[in-house]
Amino acid sequence: MALYYVAHRLFAAHDRALGAYIAHHLARRFGPDAVFLPFCDTDEETLDHPCKGRRLFELDSERLDLIDAMVAILHGPSLDDGVCMEIGYAAGRGVPILVVITDFQVYGPTADTALRMPFPDPLLQHLVNRVISVPQLGPPGGENDRFQRFLAQNLHAVTQAAIEVVDALAGSPTPGPAMPPPSINGRRLAYLEPSPYGGDDWTARVTDALRAHGFATHQAGRFTNAAADPTLTAIADWTALAHASLAVVDIRGPETPPGAALVIGACAATGRPVYAPEPGSWWTFAHGREPNYRNLMIQYGLTGTFSDLDGLAKRLEA
Rank of each mutant, 00 (worst) to 15 (best):
T305G: 03
F223P: 03
P175S: 10
L18H: 02
R187C: 10
A266D: 04
A161M: 14
R54F: 07
D48R: 11
M117E: 11
T284D: 11
A204P: 00
T174R: 15
C267G: 04
Y197C: 08
G280Q: 14
I235E: 12
F215G: 01
P177Q: 14
P273E: 09
A2V: 08
H126M: 13
D200A: 13
G253C: 11
N185I: 02
G304S: 14
A216Y: 10
A12G: 01
L37D: 02
A212K: 14
R63K: 14
L26R: 01
R188V: 08
I87C: 10
F30G: 07
Y293R: 14
D167F: 03
V128L: 12
A20S: 08
R211C: 13
L66W: 06
E290F: 05
D201M: 07
D237E: 07
S281V: 12
P277Y: 08
G94W: 05
F104S: 15
G199Y: 05
D167Q: 12
L10V: 02
T159P: 02
W283Y: 11
P96Y: 04
D208L: 14
Y89E: 06
C51Q: 15
L64N: 01
H49R: 07
T239L: 14
D15T: 03
G199V: 06
G19F: 01
A23I: 02
P257S: 06
D208P: 03
L155S: 08
V128H: 04
E45T: 09
A34E: 03
R116A: 10
H75K: 06
V134L: 13
F150D: 14
D237R: 08
H213W: 04
P254I: 11
T284M: 13
D237P: 02
G76Y: 07
P118T: 08
P38R: 09
P257K: 05
S245T: 15
V249K: 02
E143L: 06
G304K: 12
I298P: 03
Y275E: 08
L79Y: 02
F104H: 14
L56T: 01
S281Q: 12
H25P: 00
A162P: 00
D81C: 13
A318N: 15
S195H: 06
A276T: 03
P277N: 10
N144K: 06
L47P: 01
P194V: 01
C84S: 12
A7Y: 01
Q219A: 11
P50Y: 12
G304M: 12
F36M: 01
T233H: 05
A20Q: 09
Y4H: 08
H156V: 06
P196V: 10
A2C: 07
L56R: 05
H25M: 01
G280A: 14
V165K: 04
P118Y: 08
M297H: 13
L37Q: 02
V71I: 11
S245Q: 15
Y300N: 01
A269N: 06
T110S: 15
H25N: 12
F11W: 12
T102Y: 04
F36G: 01
P173R: 10
R149K: 08
P180A: 06
T270W: 10
A161L: 14
E317F: 03
D112H: 08
A152N: 13
L155W: 12
I73G: 00
T113C: 09
L64A: 00
I67E: 05
R315F: 05
W283G: 07
F119Y: 13
E193R: 11
P194Y: 00
D80E: 11
D237Y: 02
V128R: 06
S133M: 11
D145T: 10
Y275M: 11
W283L: 14
S133Y: 05
P291C: 09
L309A: 11
